[in-house]
Amino acid sequence: MNLILENLPLFLIGLRATLLLAVVTLIASTAIGVVLGSLATLKSRPLRILVALYVETFRDIPLIVTIFAIFFGAPYLGVPLEPFPSVALGLSLWGGANGAEIVRAGINSVPHGQPEAARALGLHTGQIYLLILWPQALRAVLPAYTGLLALLFQSTSLGALVGVTEFLKAGGLVIERSTVMLGINPAFQIYAFVLVVYFVISSSLSLLSRRLERRLARGGERNIVAARDAASV
């Protein structure tokens, strides 16, 4: 425990990098997911095929392979990237592919008669998505997106493989420093601490996801009861 307390500033630096990486990739993944998930529900077959190719490509390729390809391949394209943006880009492309599937499923869960009725009232496609489809899809999307955030947080540990000083990397640095300077190998103690921190944060996000799902389900039931009461009046 003393070793952990003595190296707490380094752990905090790593945890801050991990959380920043998770936030950046969640924002980017959400933007990609909303755009591509919406395009996947349009009637244009070429657009749906392109989105499906993107989604299947980044969901089928192992995430670590994508990160390595970006980090080691970018210099060959004349765009050398530092470790942090390389990992952020790789996670965002993977998260965007999964987010697109979540958004597509959420939009498809909205009754098809509603956008048709909106078109009959003169609303254009942008208004239909903004005013009708996205707000209603949010109920189905939020719990799954909270789960995606937990996966993105866990996947930030892959940044250690390309030199990002995130939480796992910080633990490795503490072990190396202790081995060289103190002649001890505290790997079990340090990695147990890292495991507990990851578990606490990830389980909290999973709990939040379940609570959101239950709350949204109760809200949907109340809306159904209210609609039935109004219809019976």
Rank of each mutant, 00 (worst) to 15 (best):
T179Y: 14
A226V: 05
L8Y: 06
T165Y: 00
G126M: 08
L50H: 11
D60V: 01
I107V: 15
F167Q: 00
V200M: 09
A137Y: 03
A97M: 01
V55G: 06
I175H: 09
A88M: 13
Q127R: 11
L20R: 12
V35T: 04
G14H: 08
S209Q: 15
A217H: 10
L142P: 00
N108Y: 11
Y145V: 00
L173A: 14
V225T: 06
V34Y: 10
R48M: 14
L216D: 02
V110T: 08
N223I: 00
S204Q: 11
G159P: 01
V23S: 06
Q136R: 04
G99W: 02
V51P: 14
V79A: 14
I201S: 01
S209V: 11
L93Y: 10
L205A: 08
R119I: 00
L53K: 13
R48Q: 15
G163N: 07
L5W: 10
E116G: 01
M1C: 01
V87K: 13
E213H: 05
Y191H: 13
V174R: 05
I190G: 14
L42T: 08
I184Q: 15
R177N: 07
A22F: 06
L20H: 06
T66I: 12
L47V: 12
G159W: 04
Y76H: 12
F11K: 06
N223S: 07
V197Y: 00
L53A: 15
P83K: 11
S209Y: 09
L152P: 07
W94G: 05
L77M: 03
G159V: 02
L151R: 13
L142H: 03
T57A: 12
G172L: 03
P85Y: 05
Y191P: 05
S204N: 08
P135K: 04
G106N: 01
L47G: 14
P186I: 12
P85A: 10
S109P: 07
E56N: 09
V55S: 09
L161M: 11
T25H: 14
S29G: 04
A227S: 11
L158K: 08
L205Q: 11
W134G: 07
H112D: 11
A22W: 06
T125C: 02
R210N: 02
G14N: 05
S206A: 13
N108E: 15
A88Y: 14
S92I: 04
G163I: 01
I132K: 13
S157V: 00
L216F: 05
L39K: 05
L131V: 02
E56H: 03
A17F: 03
G96H: 08
A22T: 09
P9F: 10
T30F: 07
L168M: 08
Y191L: 15
A17N: 10
L168V: 04
F72E: 04
G90S: 11
A105D: 13
P85E: 08
L19Y: 00
V24M: 14
P75G: 12
P115Q: 13
A231Q: 04
G220T: 06
F193H: 05
G219P: 00
A69T: 13
T41Q: 13
Y54D: 13
I184E: 15
I61N: 12
Y76P: 01
I201Y: 02
L142Y: 03
L208I: 12
G14R: 08
P46A: 10
S203R: 15
V55R: 09
L36Y: 12
G33D: 09
N98Q: 04
F11M: 06
L39N: 04
M1N: 04
V24E: 15
R48G: 15
G126T: 09
P111W: 03
